[in-house]
Design a protein around this nucleic acid. Sequence first.
DNA 1: TTAAAATTTGTTATAATATAACACTATGTA
DNA 2: TACATAGTGTTATATTATAACAAATTTTAA
Lengths: 132, 132
Amino acid sequence: MYKENNLSKNQQIIFDLINKSSEPLKAYTILFSVQKKGIKAPPQVYRALDKLVETGKIHKIESKNAFVACRNSNCEISKATAFSICESCEMVDEISDTKLSKYLSGFNHKKGMKFKRFNLEFFGICKKCKKD
Amino acid sequence: MYKENNLSKNQQIIFDLINKSSEPLKAYTILFSVQKKGIKAPPQVYRALDKLVETGKIHKIESKNAFVACRNSNCEISKATAFSICESCEMVDEISDTKLSKYLSGFNHKKGMKFKRFNLEFFGICKKCKKD
DNA sequence: TTAAAATTTGTTATAATATAACACTATGTA
DNA sequence: TACATAGTGTTATATTATAACAAATTTTAA
């Protein structure tokens, strides 16, 4: 079964949930939601999340300890991620900007460290919240 | 006492510890270290950390849940932070790069959201670890 | 096709990170 | 002074995450 779509049963259940969601989901929110599907304990959720992050199907929003589905088919397995986060409604949007991505991927540290990966989180107030 | 240096007693104790450290410190590591100075419970640590982050004296490394002293007097109270993180030795270095900072501060989201703040974390293997 | 290897699952317990709530003290300001 | 604001100390508890182990499933390759 695994080879068909690369995801195991638990991974698929959890990915589907995150993918359908309009907002980042936290691990224990996910756990609660999938209990009816037989996923009963935290390690089952965290293992699936780890794998999904590893394969780039989802991303972790570090400042929120929450997970979103990857909306950017070009993000090269999470090597270069950028998000905009609304500080009012908590909305998170993945930024797909080729220029930004290229600029940061090509950025070299003065001290000579070569980067393999980056994660960028922008914060502000989204359009919708500004109106209110 | 507060006005003299802007930091309260607990804030100063915790800032000094982080400032002296060569690596990011976690909240409970801090708690353990300052117990001899009379700081006994998590809320005391977290309150001081919150304030220090708020005033830009320290930064939180989100991917590690750990704290470092600000090494960049120009970072404008944590509105624009960037770090390089070694995935091998866990070393964290604050990046002060005017060009990078300007580029990101001026970045505008296609969807019209105006950003107030960003946090960028680069990952790789540091020079020292590469040699080993 | 079958045995070994790798991956995934299920489970219990517990570790690590963080906040709520309340009473009280110290400091800044009118 | 007296009032407001910020900080402290404390107990309890909420939230996030992993260790450890046994069993089942899937992949691989002989």
